[in-house]
Amino acid sequence: MKKRTRNIIRVSTIVAIVVLTGITLWFNFTKDNATTKVGDKAVDFKLKSLEGEEFQLHEVTKDKGVIINFWGTWCKPCREEMPDLNRAQVDHNDDDVIIITVNVSEKPQQIEQFLRGLGEDMSLTMLLDPNRSVTKAYNIGPLPTTIAIDKNNKIVKKQEYQLSKQDIESFIEAVQE
């Protein structure tokens, strides 16, 4: 075959394969990192609270930074950190920060039972996610997971597993910047 044709075939085949392989690998990598990360945009959502009131994220972030704690009554670290979260909300009631908890999949009976056991007055906004739609939208894996969202609806901090009191404080700082 003519030299030029041969060269074209060789070069284009090799380049095509390298490029396609590269694209494939890139897709493969980004797929693995599909969980929400710091820097991502916080998806807007609407959930009902335990008292039956409606709560929409983007409405709230107009005035305040939001810290969302995903939890369940069966999850031991979630139960343990709840009082600390409550206290932090009380301490920072006048700041433009609000801590909300999103309960994953449970009905009010279990939550109310848990709160009665705590014996404290709840200052936290407690939202219900019975269909896990928000939990899925945020690709939440283990519980508890806590996310801080600033007034620009950007995720500025994310931590999986139990929070210590210092952790909660750093969340509050992060969301106020």
Partner: peptide
């Protein structure tokens, strides 16, 4: 099964 279409395009969770 019954298959539904969601006519509302409201945000997640609604």
């Amino acid at each position: 099964i019954t298959f539904y279409e969601n006519l509302s395009s409201d945000v997640v969770g609604s």
